[in-house]
């Protein structure tokens, strides 16, 4: 067996997949919930950046994880609220507004990194905290499964719980019902007295909530510092994930798992004698391919449907 294959079949690989998947899953849930309400949110990139930065700086200055967590969440939600304000209230195109907010987030975090850490690249001169790893008592001792599932950062488990939370919000709460109603047909929703803009705003805020966790994990779990533009397109990959997963909890989870696996593979392949550039481009290329394949499939399904309907008649 080749060394690469052996390392891919090892439990460490499974562990890496979950680790790499975590920020993607959070971001994807963020995209999915706004998408459920009918507005595409491509500002997750910015949301994750401001949360990551805020979390690191606040943790360095207060020494408290809880305060850092709260601050990070608030920062992410504020950015989402800005998107909501400009899109829903000031009628800006949501894509352009999100592009602007991503730029804003990138610029302001680099700007403030320089102010706080006197370095434009990273905040590594700050002593920031990280979220703890957790070893799950029973699972830990199961031979292979334990090695894959136990010992992760608390936020990795948080991401899995977030899938459940997303399910509950969307399918088990009145808010979720409204979000779906607004997403499917805003006019119909309005006709029964739902304040469409308000529901869309709530969905965007929740989007910021999920995305903020992703950012916090990146800077305070995945690594222990903030680096400029450290999200590296994850907020955009998340859009491809949700397209693939159909905005549903399980679909989003499985699609995140797929992209996590690809990303982890890219890391593992780096040990081979392949130019590092090729390794780095794999996740992005795969995203395009997956998007293309998915779109072809979706198109075929669409094309098939009307004929079926005719047959039924």
């Amino acid at each position: 067996m080749s060394p690469l294959l052996r390392s891919i079949l090892s439990p460490e690989f499974g562990f890496a997949v979950l680790r790499v998947m975590t920020p993607l899953l959070f971001a994807a849930l963020g995209v999915a919930i706004s998408e459920m309400a009918g507005s595409i949110n491509i500002a997750l990139e910015g949301i994750m950046l401001v949360s990551a930065f805020t979390g690191v700086v606040v943790s360095a200055y207060t020494g408290s994880l809880v305060i850092a967590l709260l601050a990070g969440l608030i920062a992410g939600i504020i950015l989402a609220a800005m998107l909501g304000y400009f899109h829903l209230k000031l009628k800006a195109d949501i894509i352009l507004a999100a592009i602007a907010l991503n730029m804003f987030a990138s610029g302001i975090t680099i700007f403030l990194t320089f102010i706080f850490a006197h370095d434009k690249g990273t905040t590594s001169s700050l002593r920031s905290l990280v979220f703890p790893d957790i070893h799950i008592p029973v699972i830990k001792s199961i031979p292979i499964l334990g090695e894959i599932l136990s010992g992760h950062n608390i936020l990795t488990y948080g991401a899995l719980l977030a899938v459940a939370l997303y399910y509950i919000i969307i399918f088990k709460t009145p808010l979720g019902l409204r979000i779906r109603a607004v997403g499917q047909n805003p006019d119909a929703a309005e006709s029964v007295g739902i304040d469409v803009n308000r529901i869309k705003l709530y969905a965007l805020l929740l989007s910021g909530f999920f995305g903020a966790f992703g950012g916090l994990y990146l800077a305070m779990g995945y690594v222990s510092w903030f680096a400029r533009d450290m999200t590296a397109g994850r907020g955009f990959i998340a859009i491809a994930i949700t397209t693939l997963g159909g905005y549903l909890p399980i679909g989003t989870f499985l699609a995140s798992l797929l992209f996590g696996t690809v990303n982890a593979l890219a890391i593992y392949i780096a040990s081979l004698q392949i130019p590092s550039e090729f390794v780095s481009l794999i996740p992005y290329l795969v995203t395009v391919i997956v998007l293309a394949v998915y779109s072809v499939q979706a198109r075929r399904k669409k094309a098939r449907k009307p004929t079926k309907a005719k047959e039924a008649v």
Binding site: F86, L96, A100, M103, F104, G107
Partner: peptide
């Protein structure tokens, strides 16, 4: 990077 901030505000 202050100018990136200005740009984004202008676009918004």
């Amino acid at each position: 990077e202050i100018i990136v901030v200005i740009q984004s505000i202008i676009i918004l």
